[in-house]
Design a protein around this nucleic acid. Sequence first.
DNA 1: GCACAAAGACCGACTAGTTGGTTTGTTTAC
DNA 2: GTAAACAAACCAACTAGTCGGTCTTTGTGC
Lengths: 211, 211
Amino acid sequence: MAEKTLKERIIDTALRLFEQYGYHGVTVDRIVTESDASKGGFYHNFKSKDELLYHIHDVFITYVLNKAQDAYKNYHTPTERLCAIVQSFVKVFHLYKPHITVFYQESTYLRPEYSQKINEKRDEFKRVIFQVIREGIEAGEFRPELSVEITGMSIIGMVNWTYKWYKPNGPMTIEQIATHFIDFILHSVLTEEAKQKVENISFFLASKQMI
Amino acid sequence: MAEKTLKERIIDTALRLFEQYGYHGVTVDRIVTESDASKGGFYHNFKSKDELLYHIHDVFITYVLNKAQDAYKNYHTPTERLCAIVQSFVKVFHLYKPHITVFYQESTYLRPEYSQKINEKRDEFKRVIFQVIREGIEAGEFRPELSVEITGMSIIGMVNWTYKWYKPNGPMTIEQIATHFIDFILHSVLTEEAKQKVENISFFLASKQMI
DNA sequence: GCACAAAGACCGACTAGTTGGTTTGTTTAC
DNA sequence: GTAAACAAACCAACTAGTCGGTCTTTGTGC
């Protein structure tokens, strides 16, 4: 395996420090020191501290958006799609927890030119979720009295909040957490008929090879 | 009605600015200018910029904790208590949206002596919610396979996330949003028997004079 | 009711320290 | 030789906090 490049080392260090102390709680000098780099090396790889922040945002949102779009493509009923999206969404927290923390804590400090790009991808992600819920209602799988927006934001909020409490080495694995979320969500959105079909939710997930 | 004191004017201005630009995106000078105060007036009322941040945190968490404790006292079944807590919790977003935004965006920047106090109240709030869920399961109203912690954090996350998208003058009133959340939550946590009793959720809420 | 002093509220120019970013010159590695 | 990276001095801008002073209110003795 190739050694880590300087750029990667800087990003790793910055991520760790930003997560703990916040973007403004960390100086460029400190990032440089703790990643065994130099100021020259830093500014060779990044135009500015702002650009580094943008880069962190972009890596995460790009990943999660792609995962959602893949999940949409690879499954073909609203219920399966919703499960798959939530599943992959939750799993991201294992890999990208520092990214996510920075994403939700520091996005106010993104400069306009950067935040615009990020917001486009974020909105696209929301659109996919809303779409699935809308199709679920139309297909009769989800309860017709649901509000697409509030249901969508409830799901997004519930999952996103994980970044505030999830501990990678805690008592719950990320898969267990995902299963609980999906259980919670399916009980809320499915119609009685659809619930009959799914029957046992854990079994349903297993049969779809999601867990 | 008495005029607003300087302190109140400073807090109002700071809240508005912090919400939009973040704690580090706003200087004391700017707060002072936009609240028609002076540097001296600011430091007469607050020991430091940090203390102002703490004050904002404390007002919100104290309010929401009291509301949850009141809801617990005033109702006597787990289902009613959960509804009442969520109800009052969501309503807080109407009054305290800027506080909440600052609370969740800027808490990393609270100095240790302050964040300790805040965390105690926040943990106490969580404790109340966990307690209600635990009692709901024990009483047979909530599904026994629920995880108290994950269910609790799901509810808290779902509601808290509201601060990211709620617009006080948007198409949904805060009461409508609260009703949707409660509907979502009750469908997830209630056992089949308990659902029979509650029957129609909107009707249930109305009968308890919650909406 | 008044004189006056003490306390508290508030002002704003100033300071001292910090920090993102630059520059210049050097070194390493393919 | 060229690009990536280092080292360190340097700067300009910014910003939290200070400090001496003024104005206003309140309390007290007579």
